[in-house]
Simulated assay, not measured.
Amino acid sequence: MEGYPVVVEEKVRYSDIDAFNHLNNVVFFQLFQQARVAYFEEVGIFSRMGRGEQNLVVGETSCRFLAEGHYGDVVQCGARFARLGTSSCEQQYRLEVRGKPIAEGSAVLVFYDFQTGRSAPLPEPLKARIREIEARAGRVI
C-alpha cells in the first residue's frame, strides 16, 4: 500500500458482519487499532510486557467510510504518521480490499505520563524512529 510504511492484513470474520451483511462500523476502528499496534511494535513503544511509564494514548479518532467490507475479505490496513507535535501527533489509516479503499481514518495520539496523569513532550529518539520508518515509504514528516 503506497505511502503507508506499516501494513497488516486481517481477514473479515463472520462475527465482524452486522445485520446488513457488511462489515460493522465498529470493526473499522478495530482494524485501525491493529495497524496502530503493528506500527507501535515496529517503533518499539509497545510490548506485551506492558505500557511502561510513558506511552502514546488515543486522544481522538475518526473514520470516513468509503465502501462496504464483507465476510471473507482480506483487508489491508495501513498506518502512517501525518504530524509530530510537541506532546501529540497524528496518525492516519487506510483500509483496502483488493486494492480498493474502503475507509480512511485518523487518530490524535498524546504522549502520556502515567505517573503524573498528564501529557509529556514526545521524546526526540521516538520522533527520530518514526521519521526513519516514514522514510521507508518515501515520506518526510
Results as ranks from 00 to 15, higher is better:
17 I>N: 07
136 R>T: 15
38 A>D: 01
5 P>Y: 05
91 Q>V: 13
138 G>H: 06
40 F>H: 10
135 A>S: 15
62 S>L: 02
97 V>G: 04
45 I>C: 04
138 G>A: 05
75 V>W: 00
59 G>Y: 03
3 G>N: 06
141 I>Y: 12
69 G>K: 01
25 N>F: 01
84 L>T: 03
74 V>I: 14
131 R>I: 02
68 E>W: 09
7 V>R: 07
30 Q>P: 00
130 I>R: 07
91 Q>M: 13
128 A>R: 11
97 V>T: 11
1 M>E: 14
54 Q>S: 02
124 E>R: 08
39 Y>R: 07
87 S>A: 14
112 Y>W: 07
65 F>H: 01
11 K>D: 01
33 Q>H: 13
137 A>M: 08
96 E>H: 05
87 S>G: 14
18 D>A: 07
57 V>H: 05
100 K>M: 09
37 V>A: 01
54 Q>V: 03
57 V>Y: 06
7 V>I: 12
1 M>T: 15
62 S>W: 13
84 L>Y: 10
122 L>N: 11
80 R>D: 09
4 Y>W: 08
124 E>T: 08
38 A>P: 01
29 F>E: 10
34 Q>Y: 15
67 A>T: 14
66 L>A: 03
73 D>K: 04
25 N>M: 00
122 L>F: 00
99 G>E: 11
72 G>Q: 10
139 R>K: 12
90 E>H: 07
75 V>Q: 01
21 N>Q: 15
79 A>N: 11
77 C>S: 13
22 H>T: 10
98 R>Q: 10
117 G>E: 02
23 L>C: 07
94 R>I: 08
67 A>M: 11
84 L>S: 04
74 V>N: 11
9 E>C: 07
46 F>M: 11
57 V>P: 00
99 G>I: 09
65 F>K: 01
54 Q>A: 01
34 Q>N: 15
28 F>Y: 15
43 V>M: 06
56 L>A: 10
107 A>L: 00
130 I>V: 14
141 I>C: 12
32 F>D: 04
91 Q>P: 15
9 E>I: 07
127 K>L: 09
21 N>L: 14
87 S>Y: 12
59 G>A: 11
51 R>I: 15
85 G>D: 11
50 G>F: 00
88 S>R: 05
96 E>Y: 01
133 I>M: 07
140 V>C: 10
1 M>G: 14
12 V>F: 12
24 N>D: 14
67 A>V: 13
11 K>G: 08
94 R>Q: 13
24 N>L: 07
101 P>V: 07
33 Q>N: 13
102 I>P: 04
137 A>N: 02
106 S>A: 15
49 M>W: 00
114 F>S: 08
125 P>A: 05
114 F>R: 07
22 H>S: 08
120 A>I: 06
59 G>N: 04
82 A>H: 03
83 R>S: 12
132 E>N: 04
133 I>Y: 11
72 G>P: 11
124 E>W: 05
85 G>E: 09
63 C>D: 01
